[in-house]
Amino acid sequence: TGEEYIAVGDSTAQQVGDLTFKKGEILLVIEKKPDGWWIAKDAKGNEGLVPRTYLEPYS
C-alpha cells in the first residue's frame, strides 16, 4: 500500500536502485525518506528511488 503520485517530469535512473519514469506516469510511493528521495513502484511493478521534486499528489 502507499500513496499515488503523478510524475511532473521525466527522470532517468542515475545509479542502481533508481527508478526511471516518464512525465504523466502514476507512481505508488511506498516510503518517504527525509533526504528527498522516495521509494516508489510503477505500474509494471518496478521499484526504486525517485526524486520527490518530480512528483505531485494524484487525485
Score class of each variant (00 low, 15 high):
residue 55 L to P: 01
residue 3 E to K: 07
residue 49 L to C: 08
residue 52 R to V: 14
residue 21 F to Y: 05
residue 46 N to Q: 09
residue 16 V to T: 11
residue 17 G to D: 05
residue 28 L to Y: 13
residue 34 P to H: 10
residue 40 A to F: 03
residue 6 I to A: 04
residue 15 Q to V: 11
residue 57 P to Q: 07
residue 36 G to Y: 03
residue 8 V to T: 12
residue 6 I to L: 07
residue 1 T to R: 12
residue 34 P to M: 09
residue 36 G to A: 04
residue 58 Y to W: 11
residue 22 K to W: 06
residue 29 V to I: 11
residue 22 K to N: 07
residue 52 R to P: 15
residue 16 V to F: 12
residue 10 D to R: 03
residue 16 V to S: 11
residue 25 E to H: 06
residue 53 T to L: 10
residue 36 G to S: 04
residue 45 G to W: 02
residue 1 T to E: 13
residue 16 V to I: 12
residue 44 K to C: 14
residue 27 L to Q: 00
residue 54 Y to N: 07
residue 57 P to W: 06
residue 59 S to F: 13
residue 23 K to D: 03
residue 42 D to V: 02
residue 11 S to G: 07
residue 28 L to V: 10
residue 5 Y to V: 02
residue 27 L to E: 00
residue 36 G to H: 04
residue 24 G to H: 04
residue 21 F to V: 06
residue 9 G to F: 15
residue 51 P to T: 07
residue 49 L to N: 08
residue 15 Q to K: 14
residue 10 D to W: 05
residue 47 E to S: 10
residue 7 A to L: 05
residue 32 K to A: 04
residue 24 G to T: 02
residue 1 T to A: 13
residue 46 N to P: 01
residue 17 G to A: 05
residue 32 K to V: 04
residue 38 W to I: 02
residue 48 G to K: 02
residue 50 V to E: 02
residue 45 G to A: 03
residue 14 Q to S: 12
residue 41 K to H: 06
residue 41 K to I: 14
residue 13 A to R: 15
residue 1 T to W: 13
residue 5 Y to D: 01
residue 26 I to K: 06
residue 59 S to N: 13
residue 17 G to F: 06
residue 8 V to E: 02
residue 38 W to L: 04
residue 2 G to M: 12
residue 11 S to P: 04
residue 19 L to G: 01
residue 16 V to H: 11
residue 42 D to I: 02
residue 15 Q to Y: 10
residue 59 S to D: 12
residue 18 D to R: 14
residue 16 V to N: 10
residue 25 E to F: 04
residue 51 P to Y: 15
residue 50 V to N: 01
residue 17 G to I: 06
residue 48 G to T: 02
residue 46 N to W: 04
residue 7 A to C: 11
residue 24 G to W: 05
residue 12 T to W: 12
residue 11 S to Q: 12
residue 33 K to L: 11
residue 45 G to L: 03
residue 26 I to P: 03
residue 44 K to M: 12
residue 33 K to T: 09
residue 16 V to G: 09
residue 27 L to Y: 03
residue 41 K to R: 14
residue 2 G to I: 10
residue 8 V to P: 03
residue 23 K to C: 08
residue 3 E to D: 09
residue 57 P to D: 04
residue 24 G to E: 02
residue 16 V to A: 12
residue 22 K to A: 07
residue 14 Q to V: 13
residue 40 A to M: 14
residue 45 G to Y: 02
residue 4 E to D: 06
residue 57 P to I: 07
residue 2 G to A: 11
residue 57 P to N: 05
residue 7 A to P: 01
residue 5 Y to C: 04
residue 48 G to C: 05
residue 40 A to Q: 00
residue 40 A to Y: 02
residue 55 L to T: 01
residue 55 L to D: 02
residue 29 V to A: 02
residue 13 A to I: 08
residue 31 E to S: 11
residue 22 K to D: 03
residue 47 E to H: 09
residue 28 L to T: 10
residue 2 G to Q: 09
residue 17 G to K: 06
residue 9 G to H: 15
residue 52 R to T: 11
residue 26 I to W: 05
residue 43 A to H: 10
residue 12 T to E: 12
residue 11 S to H: 15
residue 14 Q to D: 10
